[in-house]
Design a protein around this nucleic acid. Structure first.
Length: 480
RNA sequence: CGGGCUGUGGCGCAGCCUGGCUAGCGCGCUUGCUUGGGGUGCAAGAGGUCCCGGGUUCAAAUCCCGGCAGCCCGACCA
C-alpha cells in the first residue's frame, strides 16, 4: 500500500471520514492550532468551484460582494440581547494589541450581523436605498469544543449574505429565494438532496425571528444542516438604528435577512458520495473531471502513446498523468482516492486498435471506446454519473425516512443511532414548535431538524408530545 | 469544558508494564537497473528534538507531574 488504507464505512464511519479527507488531499488538522484545519489543494479546489457556483447565483439575484472587518467591537454584539447570549460562549476575544491592553476588546467575528448593521445604519436613509443586497466571502471563528474537519472547525470559510428591505414581505421573499439558491446548488451541483424547512424556535439563529435551513442526510443516516437563511425581522435594525424614510414620509426600521453556507458543505459532499476506496466527487464539482493515464513499456511505445495521449487529453480537457517511475496501477489508485470522476487508460493495444479505455469512479466500470468517439463520450459519462450520484443519495434519503406516531417509537428508532455505527433515520412525526418537544427529543440526543416547507406526507395531526393539533410532520434525527 | 484512548524518521506500527550498549520493522523517499492494462522487482542509500516542559535516577522513548495536539463519548454549536 502506497498510502495509508481507508477504514471501511461499515467498520467505523467516523474513521472512514477522516481517512477519506486525508487521503483525498482535502484537508488535514492544523495540529499546532487547536480545532483548525489546513484546507489542502484538492479540498480548496472543490471549495472554489462551490464558491463560483454560489457567487454566480448571488450576482444573478442582485447581490454585490463587499468585505467587512474581521474584528468587531465587543459592545456591538451586546446590542442585540439574544445574539450576544447565543454567541458569547464561543467568542475569541482580542484584549491586547500593539503591546497594550485595549480600552474596548474586539471579538473575532463569529458572524457579521452587528458590524454590517452598523454600516447599514450609515448607508441607508431612504426607501430609495433599499433593498440593500450585500454578500461577504470571509473566514469566521467560533470557539468550538469539539471539532471535525470541514463539519465543524474553530475557524471556517463561508459566505454571509446580508440584506435590508423596506417591508417584512419583501424580506421574507429574500429569505426563501436564497434558501432556494442553496437547495439548487446542493441538489444540482453537489448531487446532494436536501429538505427545505423552518427551524423550531429553540433551534433558530440567535437574534433571528425565523430560521430556515436545508437538511441533508449523510451515508450514516445523520442529518447535516447544509445552509441557513434567516428572517431577522427588525431586531438588528432596532439594535443598530437602521432607519429609512418611506415613500409616504414615515420613518421606520429596516427589515433584514442573513444567510450563509460554509466549508461544511465540503464535508457534506464527502459524506454523501464517497466510498471505501476514497473520495467520490460529482462531475460538476470536480476540479479535475478526467485524467488520462498513459501505458507503455519501451521507449518507442512511450513516444507513440504519449503523442496520441497528449492530443486526446488536450481535446477533451483531461489532465495527462505523465509522471515517470510510477506504474499505471499506482496512478489509478492515486486518482481514485482523489475522487476524479473519469480515468482514461491509453496503451499500445489501444493505439493499435484506435481505442481508449474509460473508467468511471463511482461504479468502477470500464468501457472501451474509440478514440474518435471519446470527446463525445466523456461528457455523456459525466452527465450520467452526476445523475446517478444524485439518484443514489435521493434513494438513501427516501429509504431512510420513516414515519412515527408516538414519541416512544421515535425514541426507539433514534436512540441507538451513533455517528460511527450509523443507522440514522429521518423520522417524520407530528410535533409542535414548542420547547417541550425539543427537550423531549433531546433526551435521546436527537433534534427536530426542521419543519418542512412542503408536506410530502399526510397533513395535519396531533403532536405526539403535547397532544395539540399541528399541520404537518417534522423531521427528527440525530445530526452533526 | 468533563471522561476515555492516543502521540516514536513522511505514513503505519513495535519497544514502555519490568529504566541500561548504536531506538527497530513494514511502507514511502533518493540513486541505478528492471518493470509498466489496478499499488513491479532487485540493489545501494538518505532520513529521528522518541509531542513539549519540568522532575526522579549514575542512566528516561520507558517512571512521576504539568502542558499541547488528535480521535471517540458527553454537554455546546454552521
Amino acid at each position: 500500500m502506497a498510502e495509508s488504507p481507508i477504514t471501511a464505512r461499515s467498520k467505523d464511519f467516523a474513521a472512514w471520514y477522516q481517512d477519506v479527507v486525508l487521503s483525498g488531499d482535502m484537508a488535514e488538522p492544523a495540529e499546532i492550532v487547536k480545532g483548525c484545519m489546513v484546507i489542502r489543494a484538492n479540498g480548496y479546489a472543490v471549495w472554489e468551484v462551490l464558491q463560483r457556483e454560489l457567487d454566480n447565483r448571488f450576482k444573478a439575484t442582485g447581490h454585490q460582494n463587499m468585505y467587512f472587518p474581521l474584528l468587531i467591537p465587543k459592545s456591538f454584539l451586546e446590542k442585540e440581547a439574544e445574539h450576544v447570549e447565543g454567541f458569547a460562549p464561543e467568542l475569541a476575544v482580542v484584549t491586547v494589541a500593539g503591546g497594550k491592553e485595549l480600552e474596548e476588546p474586539y471579538v473575532i467575528r463569529p458572524t457579521s450581523e452587528t458590524i454590517i448593521g452598523h454600516f447599514f445604519a450609515k448607508w441607508i436613509q431612504s426607501w430609495r436605498d433599499l433593498p440593500m443586497l450585500v454578500n461577504q466571502w470571509a473566514n469566521v471563528m467560533r470557539w468550538e469544543l469539539r471539532t471535525r474537519m470541514f463539519l465543524r472547525t474553530t475557524e471556517f470559510l463561508w459566505q454571509e449574505g446580508h440584506t435590508a428591505h423596506s417591508s417584512h414581505d419583501e424580506a421574507m421573499e429574500e429569505v426563501l429565494r436564497m434558501l432556494d439558491v442553496y437547495a439548487d446548488v446542493a441538489e444540482n451541483i453537489m448531487a446532494m438532496p436536501v429538505i427545505k424547512g423552518q427551524k423550531t424556535r429553540a433551534e433558530k439563529f440567535a437574534g433571528a425571528e425565523k430560521t430556515f435551513s436545508i437538511e441533508a442526510m449523510m451515508q450514516n443516516g445523520l442529518a447535516l444542516q447544509a445552509g441557513t437563511s434567516h428572517d431577522l425581522g427588525q431586531n438588528f435594525g432596532k439594535a443598530f438604528d437602521v432607519k429609512f424614510q418611506s415613500k409616504e414620509g414615515q420613518l421606520d426600521h429596516v427589515w433584514q435577512t442573513s444567510w450563509g453556507v460554509s466549508t461544511r458543505l465540503v464535508g457534506g459532499l464527502i459524506m454523501s458520495h464517497s466510498d471505501d476506496k476514497g473520495l467520490v466527487l460529482p462531475p460538476k464539482l470536480a476540479p479535475t473531471k478526467a485524467v488520462l493515464v498513459p501505458i507503455y513499456r519501451k521507449d518507442e511505445e512511450r513516444a507513440q502513446v504519449m503523442e496520441v495521449a497528449s492530443k486526446i487529453a488536450k481535446d477533451i480537457g483531461a489532465k495527462l498523468d505523465e509522471r515517470e517511475g510510477q506504474t499505471p496501477g499506482a496512478k489509478f489508485y492515486h486518482w481514485e482516492r482523489r475522487g476524479v470522476p473519469v480515468v482514461l487508460e491509453l496503451g499500445p493495444r489501444d493505439i493499435a486498435a484506435g481505442n481508449i479505455v474509460l473508467k468511471t469512479r463511482h461504479t468502477g466500470a470500464k468501457e472501451i471506446t474509440t478514440q474518435e468517439g471519446i470527446a463525445e463520450r466523456v461528457p455523456q459519462v459525466l452527465e450520467q454519473m452526476q445523475a446517478e450520484l444524485y439518484a443514489a443519495a435521493k434513494k438513501r434519503l427516501d429509504d431512510n425516512t420513516v414515519l412515527a406516531n408516538s414519541i416512544e417509537q421515535v425514541e426507539e428508532i433514534l436512540r441507538p443511532v451513533t455517528a460511527e455505527k450509523g443507522g440514522g433515520r429521518f423520522v417524520m412525526a407530528h410535533m409542535k414548535d414548542d420547547a417541550r418537544c425539543d427537550a423531549r427529543v433531546k433526551e435521546f440526543k436527537a433534534t427536530i431538524r426542521c419543519i418542512p416547507l412542503v408536506d410530502r406526507f399526510d397533513g395535519p395531526g396531533k403532536c405526539i408530545v403535547t397532544g395539540e393539533q399541528v399541520d404537518r410532520r417534522v423531521v427528527i434525527a440525530k445530526a452533526y
